[in-house]
């Protein structure tokens, strides 16, 4: 039973981690908690479902690529419409946070209006294929989710260290004003960070619905909160922190649900979060900001 719970925790943690990276990426640059990320998670899954059932027929790969492109565009547009005007006015990030909550609500309402409130079957990969991992029954999609997360984590690490755009994002996270003065396309780079965050939410949303084999409009609500908690737990603004936070949270939840009760799992996971914040407010990997006086 323990191994089964750990496998379930790992696949669930991968979903949290992918979404949490999106939160972390944007926070590291703008010190903004982009609440619209959870709605992009849902919106992407809805787009995937709509494309798969209408336009692209049975091609999961093509549908996935189109969904990623759509999610990237949504992220970029969210930044241009809802965040950039506030940022350029120099207003507080609190306004941007409220604006992102507004975007989240609007996206969720659009999804409900177009998709409806019923649960629907979602296409999945290698349905009905299971592997016995030392007694833990593991579905093919669980393995795919875990491996995909690790690959994306590796890619994000390479992207931020070695890619020109990724290095630009890192530079922004250190000092936006200096980047401006250096003539870097700051607005474009921030837009790209929103696009990348949204694409990660899309991967996570589609993967989660494939795991559930179903989609309903409530699919993003719980994950958004958990992913945000994972981000804070691991150290907000730290990519590896988001991943580790996601796994810790999901495994803790699964252990508590499995050995105690599902209702207690929220209590425990958020209890861990509060404890970490009390002991180390910057989260597991977060560094204390040094302010020059």
């Amino acid at each position: 039973m323990l191994l089964q719970i750990l496998v379930n925790g790992l696949s669930q943690g991968s979903i949290y981690a992918l979404t949490a990276i999106g939160y972390s990426l944007i926070y590291s640059i703008l010190q903004l908690i982009n609440m619209s990320n959870a709605a992009v998670f849902l919106t992407s899954a809805v787009i995937f479902y709509a494309l798969y059932t209408s336009l692209t027929g049975s091609s999961i790969a093509l549908t996935f690529i189109l969904t990623l492109m759509a999610a990237g565009m949504i992220g970029y547009i969210i930044e241009i419409i809802a965040i950039r005007p506030i940022r350029e006015k120099g207003d507080s990030n609190t306004y941007a946070l409220i604006s992102s909550i507004g975007v989240k609500t609007i996206l969720e309402q659009i999804c409900q209006g177009t998709f409806g409130s019923e649960i629907k079957q979602f296409p999945t990969l290698l349905d009905g294929k299971y592997i016995d991992l030392f007694g833990a029954r593991t579905s093919a999609i669980q393995i795919i989710i875990i491996l995909t997360t690790l690959c994306i984590l590796g890619f994000m690490s390479w992207f931020t260290q070695h890619n020109r755009v990724g290095r630009g994002l890192r530079a922004l996270s250190q000092n936006i004003r200096a980047c401006h003065l250096m003539g870097m396309p700051v607005n474009t780079l921030i837009g790209i960070s929103f696009a990348v965050g949204s694409m990660l939410a899309a991967v996570s949303g589609v993967a989660y619905c494939m795991y559930l084999k179903s989609i309903s409009i409530s699919v993003g609500s719980a994950i958004g909160n958990k992913a945000f908690a994972a981000t804070v737990l691991g150290g907000i603004g730290e990519l590896k922190g988001a991943v580790v936070g996601g796994y810790i949270l999901a495994i803790a939840e699964n252990l508590v649900s499995g050995y105690w009760s599902m209702s207690a799992s929220n209590f425990i996971s958020f209890g861990i979060l509060i404890l970490v914040l009390i002991i180390k407010p910057t989260g597991i990997f977060g560094k204390k900001e040094q302010k020059k006086v």
Binding site: M1, Q4, I5, N8, Q12, E118, I119, Y208, L212, S214, S216, S218, V219, S221, A222, I223, E253, N254, S257, G258, Y259, M262, S263, S265, N266
Partner: peptide, 30 residues
């Protein structure tokens, strides 16, 4: 389980250990 729960694998794993003949669900259709 709480409202909005999507992943039930942990409690199902727990129930599986008890080897039931029948699982009764008082749940919403989704």
């Amino acid at each position: 389980y709480e409202d909005g729960q999507q992943d039930f694998t942990s409690i199902l794993t727990k129930i599986k250990e008890t080897n039931p003949e029948l699982v009764m669900c008082f749940c919403a259709e989704n």
